[in-house]
């Protein structure tokens, strides 16, 4: 069971909606404006890196997870 879940979600929350929005924007733009879709994807890459950093930093912290048994 993750022990720092609330803090991790508070850190990740600001980028979740923009990631979804940029992802869907890229999907909507791709058939018409490939470069604009790639630009949205590139911008999304920064947010995705931040999200992965949140997971890596908190998930690999000491006592991040309580295990039973």
């Amino acid at each position: 069971m993750p022990l720092f879940s609330i803090g991790a979600n508070a850190l990740a929350e600001p980028v979740v909606v923009p990631i979804l929005g940029l992802g869907l924007l890229a999907a909507g733009l791709a058939p018409l404006l490939l470069n604009a879709a790639a630009a949205a994807g590139w911008l999304n890459g920064w947010l995705l890196d931040y999200l992965a950093w949140c997971a890596r930093t908190i998930g690999s912290a000491p006592h991040a997870e309580a295990r039973s048994g």
Binding site: P2, S5, I6, A12, A55, I58, G59
Partner: peptide, 9 residues
């Protein structure tokens, strides 16, 4: 994936 699970994300 393990880190996402351990962090509650």
């Amino acid at each position: 994936r393990d880190q996402f699970r351990a962090s509650g994300l």
